[in-house]
Structure formats: structure tokens, C-alpha cells
């Protein structure tokens, strides 16, 4: 259904990426399964996969919950684990220190857990220890930030960062397309992360399709303070703007505050990640924020579900395959006032 709405918005460009939408955990299927996030497509009956099996010990490690999206990663992982009595989830301290995160994974290896779900602070930096886990026979489920070596993970759950940029760019094209001189600005997240580079690349490519380009680009750090700072700088640099894409709705709180303080509202803004308050704002149509691009914060939960299936040697429902797939990439739909009702219940709180 999200594809249909994307078409309706004239943003059908999003194809080209292998998109495997995993059951209810993405924003694609609305809120009909409530808070449990338990698997199965919305219409289908709960599959036998949900029946309790052998207890699975899963080690989980993610970066520090210093923004709403990241907090929701761990929270939704816990929720997913709580929904199954056969999952024993061990959550390590969220940290942005790769040295510490490595030692957490080492601890999981020493402990002999059944599987490790890992959202690395820096994918490349966590690759050696993930390889070590795989060599020790512990399947690693890599979430969101990819390892350097494909052998370091059994399953990779990815959002579509490039696709986010494409979705945002296509939407802006559809809104401003007839004006080739339109000024487009971009407020990126942490620039050193490959995910930011992918988002920007997708954005640039999609804008290029309709003859637009990024006139002003600043980078923040996914925090409210960082967003406020970056947006203030942007406003100084660009006296007139037609459209802004802000990569992340957490920093978007600061971005909107900066716009408000400067009294600037001559442009439209598109958000990113898909926070609940951004969606409420879109629903109420009370600010320059007209749309946001979802980057599911439930990927950690997806990782937990996959880990459980993997260890219990179950296959993924709705697929013919005997084994759990190697990679699952989620979709990045555009949320506007027209379809916000479908997404708001799975959105994360900033």
C-alpha cells in the first residue's frame, strides 16, 4: 500500500533497490497488530513461527540512546523479546565508544549466547569482533549500519538510506518541479557516517532527475541542539529557500525551533526517520513541515525476530525459502497529510 501512495504522490522512483518488507515490523503494515510487533502480515493468521520453541539467548548491543530513534531501537527490541517467552534478551549498555562496544560483543562470545543482534556505532570498526563471533559459531544479525565484511553477519537488516534520499528528493521534485531555479537546502545528520553519505547521494540523484540541485548543505548530529545550530547557520547562508530536507526528525525539533525563531516560513520542509511528533505536526499542518520519510526504528526488533527464527531453525513466514534470508532491506515511504494515519502508530517518540 505504501507503494501505491508513493505513486499517488508521483514519487515512484523508489524502485531499484531490492526491497523486502518484513512483516509487520515496518511502517508498511499499519497499526493493526498493536504494540506487540508480532510477525505475520496484517491479514494472515499468526503463523506457527510464533509458537514457543527452545529458549534463545540473544545478546543485543546498540549505540547510546542519545536521540529518540536510537532509543526506540532498543525499546522496540525489548518489546519484541518480551512478546516471546522463549527469548532471553541480554541488552548491553548503549555506547558510542567502539572500544566498549567491542568488549560487550566479546562478553557475549565468552558467554556463548545463541545469537548477537548488533547495531554498531561504526560498522567498519565493529567488523573484526563480529567476524570473531561468527567464527565462534554465533550468528550475528547486523542492524542498520553495515559491517565492512559480508562474512561478519549471517543476516543484515537495513533501512534504505539511499532510498530515503530518493524519496525526499522525488517528493520535493513533485512539489517544486516546475521551477528550475528553486533553492533546495539539506540538513544532514552525522557526516562521517556512511548512512548520511548515502542519504545525501540519493537526495542529489533524485533532485537531478528534475533538474534541481542542493544549493545549501549543512550537517548536524541527530541531536536537537545540533539541529538548531545547523539550521541557524543555514538560514544565515541562504536568504531565500524553497525547500529543505532535514535527514532526521529528532534534530528536526531543533531545526523547526530555529526556523520559528528566525521567523522564516517561505519554504516547505521534508523530515526524515519519521518521529511521532513530526507526524502529528504533519497531521495538524501547523508548520513548514509537510512530509517526512520513514526510516523504521523497529529494525532492532526485526533483528531480534530474525535471530529467534535463525536459532530455532525456522523459516521466515510468507517466503518459500527454507532458510532466513541473508539481507532484509526496509522501505522508505513518504508520509504526508494524506497517508499519515497509516504510519503514526509505529512512529517513534522523540
Amino acid at each position: 500500500m505504501s507503494l501505491r501512495s508513493a505513486h499517488k504522490l508521483g514519487t515512484g522512483l523508489v524502485a531499484g533497490v531490492a526491497v523486502l518488507s518484513l512483516a509487520a515490523c515496518t511502517g508498511n503494515t499499519a497499526a493493526d497488530d498493536g504494540g506487540t510487533q508480532a510477525g505475520g502480515t496484517s491479514e494472515a493468521e499468526q503463523g506457527s513461527n510464533d509458537e514457543a520453541g527452545d529458549t534463545v539467548v540473544i545478546g543485543f548491543s546498540a549505540p547510546a540512546a542519545d536521540h529518540g530513534w536510537m532509543a526506540s531501537i532498543t525499546e522496540s527490541a525489548r518489546e519484541a523479546a518480551d512478546a516471546y517467552e522463549d527469548v532471553d534478551l541480554r541488552v548491553a549498555e548503549g555506547t558510542n565508544d567502539v572500544n566498549l562496544q567491542i568488549s560487550q560483543v566479546e562478553t557475549f562470545i565468552n558467554d556463548g549466547v545463541d545469537a548477537i543482534v548488533l547495531l554498531p556505532f561504526d560498522g567498519a570498526a565493529m567488523t573484526p569482533v563480529a567476524l570473531q563471533a561468527m567464527e565462534a559459531g554465533i550468528p550475528v544479525i547486523n542492524v542498520d549500519r553495515e559491517f565492512e565484511d559480508p562474512n561478519a553477519a549471517r543476516v543484515t537488516v537495513l533501512g534504505d538510506n539511499y532510498g530515503m534520499g530518493v524519496s525526499a528528493g522525488s517528493y520535493i521534485c513533485s512539489e517544486l518541479g516546475d521551477n528550475p531555479d528553486a533553492v533546495v537546502a539539506e540538513i544532514a545528520g552525522i557526516d562521517s557516517l556512511p548512512l548520511t553519505q548515502d542519504r545525501s547521494q540519493g537526495f542529489e540523484d533524485a533532485l537531478g532527475e528534475c533538474g534541481l540541485d542542493v544549493d545549501n548543505r549543512v550537517a548536524a548530529d541527530f541531536t536537537v541542539e545540533g539541529g538548531e545550530r545547523a539550521a541557524s547557520n543555514l538560514l544565515q547562508a541562504a536568504p531565500q529557500i524553497d525547500a529543505v530536507w532535514n535527514h532526521d526528525d529528532d534534530q528536526g525539533v531543533g531545526v523547526l525551533a530555529a526556523f520559528e525563531n528566525a521567523g522564516r516560513d517561505e519554504f516547505m520542509m521534508v523530515g526524515g526517520a519519521g518521529s511521532a511528533n513530526a507526524m502529528r505536526s504533519i497531521q495538524a499542518d501547523d508548520s513548514v513541515l509537510k512530509a517526512t520519510v520513514v526510516y523504521p526504528s523497529t529494525q532492532g526488533a526485526d533483528g531480534i525476530m530474525m535471530a529467534r527464527l535463525l536459532v530455532q531453525q525456522k523459516a521466515m513466514g510468507d517466503l518459500v525459502e527454507v532458510e532466513v534470508p541473508r539481507e532484509v532491506q526496509l522501505y522508505a515511504p513518504v508520509v504526508t497529510a494524506d497517508n499519515v494515519d497509516q504510519f503514526i502508530d509505529t512512529a517513534f517518540e522523540s
Binding site: V98, A125, S192
Partner: peptide
């Protein structure tokens, strides 16, 4: 050696 990487965030 621990991460096989050098970055400005270390």
C-alpha cells in the same frame, strides 16, 4: 588494531 579502522570519532 582492535577495530582495524582509524576515524575522527575514536
Amino acid at each position: 588494531s582492535r577495530t582495524t579502522t582509524g576515524t575522527s570519532t575514536h
